[in-house]
């Protein structure tokens, strides 16, 4: 077998079968994965949640993960945000001609491992090969179905004045790790992506502390973007305390050099939760006992005033808007 993916692998013939056998069937072995045109699945008992997401990331491999792990975490975490236990996932690959077969297999292996950890089954997949230059490396689209836990209902609209705003860990690590991996700025730092499937810790939280209002993963656009989305959806204000926002020293160093704000950098294993005030302590206790969320912290409160706005209380006790994110993130230097 060739060591790179060629257009022949996408032609549907013998070589396509070879690719599927070597890479996908090997790693996506389970009782639902079939050679037929569609998988046949038992229906969940309760309400379902369904989500889809496309992943393009350059480079495909970065400290702490790769696009495969990312694509499973992304969909698992989207389901998790609705209080839905991830059950089934599909994945569709668009692979650029010339992509390394070994790397493709590593990507599939990461998907297998991450899916197993989150308890989700990869039930179907598709592979297309694009000509050189028609795609950049490897693109993955994943779709997931989950079963919503009985009695759980979360939505950005449920954010209410008095709620505590919690982040499940330090912020901005994925965005920083990717920025460093691209090596556009010649900065070196030991920053790994936070990319992780959060169903297990969030499941523990929902089981032990019913009544969480909002769960949102702070992916593209980071925590700042999520907070603005929720402030708009619920028609509330959000007040943050800058000194309480957890940011790793290395992330502070990198963002400080480039004049970037960690609140706008992507997280792939860190969520934003809105929890009624009375449940705050128990929520923090449960989260801090779980892996991936041990660094959970309250960063602010929901207010009735300043609707649609995120307010920052700064280190000198002054208050100002957190700028509403938009636009491409660009370093600010000169």
């Amino acid at each position: 077998m060739n060591d790179t993916v060629t257009l022949a692998h996408g032609a549907g013939g013998k070589q396509t079968a070879e690719l599927i056998d070597r890479v996908f069937r090997k790693h996506f072995q389970n009782r639902y994965f079939t050679s037929d045109d569609a998988s046949v699945l038992p229906a969940p008992a309760g309400k379902m949640a369904m989500t889809t997401d496309g992943f393009i990331v350059s480079p495909a491999f970065f400290p702490g993960g790769n696009i495969g792990k990312l694509s499973v975490c992304g969909t698992v975490n989207d389901l998790t945000c609705m209080g839905a236990k991830p059950l089934y996932m599909t994945c569709a690959f668009v692979i650029e001609e010339g992509f390394s077969m070994e790397e493709l297999e590593q990507i599939a292996a990461s998907m297998e491992q991450t899916a197993a950890e989150a308890g989700v089954v990869l039930v179907a997949g598709d592979t297309k090969v694009a000509g050189k230059g028609q795609a950049d490396g490897c693109f993955i689209t994943t779709t997931g179905i989950g079963e919503i836990l009985d009695g759980v209902s979360t939505s950005g609209r449920f954010a209410a004045p008095g709620d505590a705003v919690i982040v499940t860990g330090d912020i901005g690590r994925h965005g920083t790790a990717i920025l460093l991996a691209r090596d556009d700025y010649g900065i070196e730092a030991d920053v790994k992506t936070d990319c992780a499937p959060l169903w297990n810790p969030i499941h523990a939280l929902l089981r032990e502390v019913p009544g969480v209002h909002v769960i949102r993963d702070a992916t593209r656009g980071g925590v700042g973007t999520v907070l603005y989305e929720i402030a708009h959806e619920a028609g509330v204000g959000i007040s943050l305390e800058r000194e309480k926002i957890p940011v790793a020293e290395e992330v502070k160093g990198v963002t400080g050099m480039l004049g970037l704000e960690p609140l706008y950098l992507a997280c792939e294993g860190t969520m934003v939760l809105f929890v009624p005030e009375s449940l705050t302590d128990s929520a923090l206790r449960v989260l801090r006992e779980q892996s991936y969320t041990a660094g959970a912290a309250v960063i602010g409160r929901v207010t009735a005033e300043n609707s649609g706005r995120v307010i920052m209380e700064t280190e000198i006790g002054a208050r100002t808007y957190l700028p509403e994110p938009g636009n491409e993130l660009l370093p600010r230097i000169c």
């Binding site: 700025y185 010649g186 900065i187 070196e188 730092a189 030991d190 020293e249 290395e250 502070k252 160093g253 990198v254 400080g256 050099m257 004049g259 600010r332 230097i333 000169c334």
Partner: peptide, 26 residues
């Protein structure tokens, strides 16, 4: 106009220094 960052000099050689700001090296 002048974003600056304080950093510690780790090593220095021939007009070029490696500096460290909170673990970020440049």
């Amino acid at each position: 106009m002048c974003v600056g960052l304080s950093a510690k000099v780790v090593s220095i050689k021939g007009g070029v220094a490696i500096v460290d700001a909170g673990g970020a090296k440049k």
